[in-house]
Design a binder for these strands. Structure first.
Length: 856
RNA sequence: GCGGGCGUGGCGGAAUUGGCAGACGCAAGGGACUUAAAAUCCCUCGCCCAUGGCAUGCGGGUUCGAACCCCGCCGCCCGCACCA
């Protein structure tokens, strides 16, 4: 029995593909293009199973499209700036640049063992100055176009490390490394006007018909468009006004209080001589800033003692609270509360004993008795207790209040977005320097284009807290481009979401030096036809890229609006978790073995182990499996096959030893089946013999059905079904001993089809078997097989026969038989007659080629 | 809290989108080969009072017919603005 030598075979074909430049892409107007892109990896050190899944899916699509005649672009690069490199610098005393570049080396090597059809000549790393220099130019262009501006904004400040913390670095209000209480600080930072595009970004979602619905919904919610009214309350005893925003102006006569955010300027002013209020505000700030924390916290408020006057009744006053559920970032940071028709307001009113007056009554309720208990009424209805609004519906009420406030000059109808401008300044070292110089006389001045790039210096140290760029002895000292006087460089760097907002376009002309993009190249390749990545990027990365692309278009860089025409979000790779039963310590899968009784125990001590739930692979839970080890043992094809089998690609996948074993067994089974064919096969390209045995004829139909089915499965990314189908076909072919008429020929057709069908999924095995079948060509260059339509449909179909909806018989009959024939055959059946028990037939439903239902 | 998703054998999942529930695989059990094991091959495999009955998280409904559509529950998962 010959054995498939994975290591040798996989290395051999990877070498052949590379030497022949199989996957090098060039623009070719004569062929339809197809741009496949997986989200590029952060070079964290080693590839993980999530990468394997992501790149396997992308590679299947790329190879499948290639075989279907498309000119495919399938590039790879590195999202190389970011926080982990700086953490490594602190923890391991390695320079971020060195750490990053070494990681890229390792990971490139690992990716290459996967046998991906990538055009490696287009590789880019975002930390290279040849890359980020263009980003600096783009930023200057955005400044000119009025898309970038500066404003003050809050950051998390670690007073021990003297550094800004990301939200994820703040744990229970303390810095993750120092444990120091985190302070809120205001810094002047750069912002991009993504809100300028809010409407466009929202509308654009409607054109993205090859995006998952849920990603579009998430983006829609993120943009958070709402229409309403902005108006100003007069403040009793003060000159200034309190501006509020509401989406429910119709409920204005149900108002019982006004509330402002703890970060509202008015709150700060009042707190200055009210220590209790100051303490309440401090408490609100400790709550955290996430929407989830705010929404789920108990609604609390502090009566400021101030009163506002109802806009339509000078004698009606409402108390003003500082409330923990009002966000400064949304609207005006102030609201009016109508408890009867808003749950948050209702919770608040119940707590502080404020009136609850229903002003919207459902059409079918009695206005006299309608009351609100613990649940606010937010549905449609008729306005009551609302003076001039009485009798109107909700929508008319909104318009009427808006109109009257506008007439009185007290407010205006507006559209509000939840989307906020994109803060892009980071007080970090390992990122793209922001090309700005701060002059004492001229303020922030853009670096002249002729002085670009502003190179990130690599001779920095990490020995003291704070930003190394700030400590560098010379780098930040320069002169003002306007007046020439000594000035300081901006030491902030860009958010790393910027690099990933345009890398897909850079892949079109990765080597162009003078310009970010060669116009002909981006015009040819963009948009990305199929983008593949994790759902975790559903909002930020994908929304920023959509915005950045629009901004680039405004500045004349390219001519597309939507960067990603198709999007696929894959599920995570999970694994069982294990804990030592005695100590509770997490154990890695490699620490375990099975004892004689089949129980999972520690491999070293034999001590019992608790098997926990299946969870996302993570270092902290030790339930990671190293792809390098798997590929080293079973080969890339087995790992790829496993990634595609069983679980639908958008769903989470559980990695199991048994699963990879199963994939490995199938590879060897295929290998043996084809290399040890039961009879000698006719030469490649031999014509079909005149006569085929019945079994050969049936097998031939199975082959063509598999081709047709699999083409559709791959087209719709149903890889698990595609795998099932090709296994089914292999099972059918394994039944053929080749002795009957034409069977040797059908074996060749079947084997060649199987090999071509597995090509995108298991390219190395595919190439090897293709060669074994006597071909001197590369499978990678072969067109996708075509199914003969006449062989895809069976001429005999099996029809289910039901009596009163219950299955009583199955009948074989010719395809597309007349309804009457099906009906009479069904009624003639013994089982059907028995089930009828002599009852008269009332009705017979016939669905051609499918089912007959006899109703008695 | 808001928004979204999921729930089918011991397990991952199929089911032509309203028409034979359980394809394909994993695990398990039995057998063959072997001195033995591994590998491989063959058979069985939703449950039960088996010519039948019950089964797609639970309870209703629509329909000739429901895993699929509608209403109401239950459970789990994900996102909610400086990780990438």
């Amino acid at each position: 029995m010959s054995r498939y030598n994975v290591k040798e075979t996989e290395a051999k074909w990877q070498g052949v593909w590379e030497r022949q430049g199989c996957f090098t892409a060039t623009e070719d107007a004569s062929r339809p293009k197809y741009y496949v892109l997986e989200m590029f990896p952060y070079p964290s050190g080693r590839i993980h199973m999530g990468h394997v899944r992501n790149y396997t899916i992308g590679d299947v699509i790329a190879r499948f499209k290639r075989a279907n005649g498309f000119n495919v672009l399938h590039p790879m690069g590195w999202d190389a700036f970011g926080l982990p490199a700086e953490n490594a610098a602190l923890e391991k005393k390695v320079h971020p640049a060195k750490w990053t570049r070494e990681n890229i080396e390792t990971m490139r090597g690992q990716l290459k063992t996967m046998g991906l059809s990538i055009d490696w000549s287009r590789e880019i790393a975002t930390c290279d100055v040849e890359y980020y220099r263009h980003e600096q130019k783009m930023f200057l262009d955005f400044l000119k176009a009025g898309l970038a501006y500066r404003k003050e904004s809050w950051v998390n400040w670690d007073p021990v490390d003297n550094t800004v913390l990301a939200n994820e670095q703040v744990i229970d209000g303390r810095g993750w490394r120092t444990g120091a209480l985190v302070e809120k600080r205001k810094l002047s930072q750069w912002f991009l006007k993504i809100t300028d595009c809010a409407e466009e970004l929202l509308d654009g979602l409607g054109t993205l018909d090859r995006w998952p619905e849920r990603v579009r919904i998430m983006q829609e919610n993120w943009i958070g468009k709402s229409t309403g009214v902005r108006f100003r309350f007069a403040l009793k005893g003060r000159e200034d006004k309190l501006e509020v925003f509401t989406t429910r102006p119709d409920t204005l006569f149900g108002a019982s209080f006004a509330a402002i955010s703890a970060n509202h300027p008015l709150a700060a002013e009042l707190a200055a001589n009210n220590p209790d209020l100051a303490e309440f505000i401090a408490e609100c700030n400790r709550l955290g800033t996430s929407e989830e924390a705010i929404e789920t916290a108990e609604k609390r408020g502090f009566d400021t003692g101030l009163r506002v006057v109802h806009p339509f009744d000078p004698s009606w006053e409402l108390p003003v609270y500082v409330a923990n559920f009002v966000l400064m970032e949304y609207g005006t940071g102030a609201i009016f509360g109508c408890p009867a028709h808003d749950q948050r307001d209702l919770d608040f009113a119940r707590k502080y004993g404020l009136p609850v007056t229903p002003v919207v009554v459902p059409a079918d309720a009695d206005p006299a008795s309608f009351a609100v208990g613990d649940e606010a009424y937010t549905g449609p209805g008729v306005l009551r207790n609302s003076r001039f609004l009485d009798g109107l519906d909700v929508e008319s009420g909104k318009q009427e209040v808006g109109r009257r406030l506008e007439e009185a000059g007290q407010g205006e109808r507006t559209t509000q977005y939840r989307l906020r401008d994109w803060g892009v300044s980071r007080q970090r070292y390992w990122g793209c320097p922001i090309p700005v110089i701060h002059c004492p006389d001229h303020g922030p001045v853009p670096v002249p284009e002729s002085d670009l790039p502003v190179v990130l210096p690599e001779d920095v140290t990490f020995d003291k807290p704070g930003n190394p760029l700030d400590h560098h002895p010379t780098w930040k000292h320069t002169s003002c481009p306007v007046c020439g006087k000594p000035a300081l460089r901006e030491t902030d760097t860009f958010d790393t979401f910027i690099e990933s907002s345009w890398y897909f376009a850079r892949f079109c002309s990765p080597k162009s030096n003078d310009v970010a993009f060669d116009r002909a190249a981006v015009d040819y390749w963009l948009a990305v036809d199929q983008y593949i990545g994790g759902i975790e990027h559903a909002v930020l990365h994908l929304l920023y890229s959509r915005f950045w692309t629009r901004a680039l278009k405004r500045c004349g860089y390219l001519n597309v609006e939507e960067p990603f025409a198709g999007l696929f979000t894959q599920g995570m790779v999970n694994h069982e978790t294990y804990k030592d039963a005695a100590t509770g310590a997490w154990l890695a899968p490699t620490d375990l073995t099975k004892n004689d009784r089949g129980e999972v125990v520690r491999a070293d001590t034999g001590a019992p182990v608790n098997v926990g739930r299946v969870e996302k692979m993570s270092k902290s839970k030790k339930n990671v499996v190293d792809p390098a080890h798997i590929i080293g043992t079973y080969g890339a094809d087995a790992a790829r096959l496993f990634m595609l089998s069983d679980s639908p690609p958008e769903r989470d996948l559980e990695w199991t030893e048994a699963g990879i074993d199963g994939a490995w067994r199938y590879i060897n089974r295929l290998w043996r089946m084809i290399t040890e064919a039961p009879v000698p096969l006719p030469a490649p390209g031999s014509p079909k013999p005149e006569r085929l045995s019945e079994r050969a004829e049936a097998t031939r139909r199975a082959v063509h059905k598999a081709i047709a089915g699999m083409s559709e499965d791959l087209d719709k990314f149903r890889f698990n079904k595609a795998v099932a189908r090709v296994r089914e076909l292999s099972n059918a072919l394994a039944e053929i001993d080749g002795k009957g008429e034409g069977e040797a020929w059908i074996l060749r057709e079947g084997f060649e089809s199987v090999v071509r069908l597995i090509g995108p999924m298991m390219p190395h095995l595919g190439e090897e078997l293709w060669a074994q079948l006597g071909h001197g060509t590369l499978l990678a260059d072969q067109p996708w097989p075509e199914a003969d339509p006449s062989l895809v449909v069976e001429d005999t179909v099996t029809i289910a026969v039901q009596v009163n909806g219950k299955l009583r018989a199955t009948l074989a009959m010719p395809r597309d038989a007349a309804k009457e024939v099906a009906e009479s055959m069904a009624l003639a059946d013994d089982n059907v007659q028995r089930a009828l028990e002599g009852k008269p037939v009332r009705k017979v439903i016939v669905v051609p080629n499918r089912i007959v239902n006899v109703v008695a």
